[in-house]
C-alpha cells in the first residue's frame, strides 16, 4: 500500500478518535455532569461551603477565598512562603488589584 494512504488513514483515525472523545465528553457534561453538579451545588448551598477541598496543608490553601492578606507570610515579617501549594495558588485578585492601584 502507498505510504500516503497509510498516513491519511492514521490521521483520519486520530481525528475520529478525538471527535468521539469530544462528543462523549459533551454528552457526559449534559447528563452525568449536570446531575453531579446539581448534587454538589446542593451540598454547597446547604452546608455553606466556600472552597474546594484541594490543598489541606495550610489554612490559606484549604480556604484561599477566606484567607486574610498576610496568611502566606504569617510566621514573621518577610517570612518566606514554605508550603508548596502556596506557589500554585495565585494571589487573590483583590491583592493584585491593590498593587496595581
Amino acid at each position: 500500500m502507498r505510504k500516503h494512504l497509510i498516513f491519511i488513514g492514521i490521521t483520519g483515525l486520530e481525528l475520529a478518535l478525538l471527535a468521539v472523545l469530544f462528543v462523549l465528553s459533551a454528552d457526559m457534561v449534559r447528563t452525568k455532569g449536570q446531575r453531579q453538579m446539581n448534587s454538589k451545588s446542593q451540598l454547597v448551598a446547604l452546608l455553606g461551603l466556600t472552597d474546594l477541598s484541594l490543598w489541606t496543608e495550610a489554612r490559606y490553601t484549604r480556604h484561599p477565598s477566606q484567607a486574610d492578606f498576610f496568611t502566606a507570610f504569617q510566621d514573621f515579617p518577610a517570612a518566606i512562603e514554605h508550603f508548596p501549594a502556596g506557589s500554585i495558588v495565585a494571589p487573590l485578585p483583590s491583592v493584585v488589584f491593590l498593587k496595581k492601584k
Binding site: F22, L24, S25, A26, M28, V29, K32, G33, Q36, M37, S53, L54, W55, T56, E57, T61, F83, P84, A85, I88
Partner: peptide, 20 residues
C-alpha cells in the same frame, strides 16, 4: 505536582468541560 504537602488529596473525577 498539584498535591504539594497535602496528606489528604481528592482523586480527580473531573467533569470533562473542554474549551475548543
Amino acid at each position: 505536582v498539584i498535591k504539594g504537602w497535602s496528606v489528604l488529596f481528592p482523586s480527580f473525577k473531573l467533569i470533562p468541560f473542554v474549551n475548543l
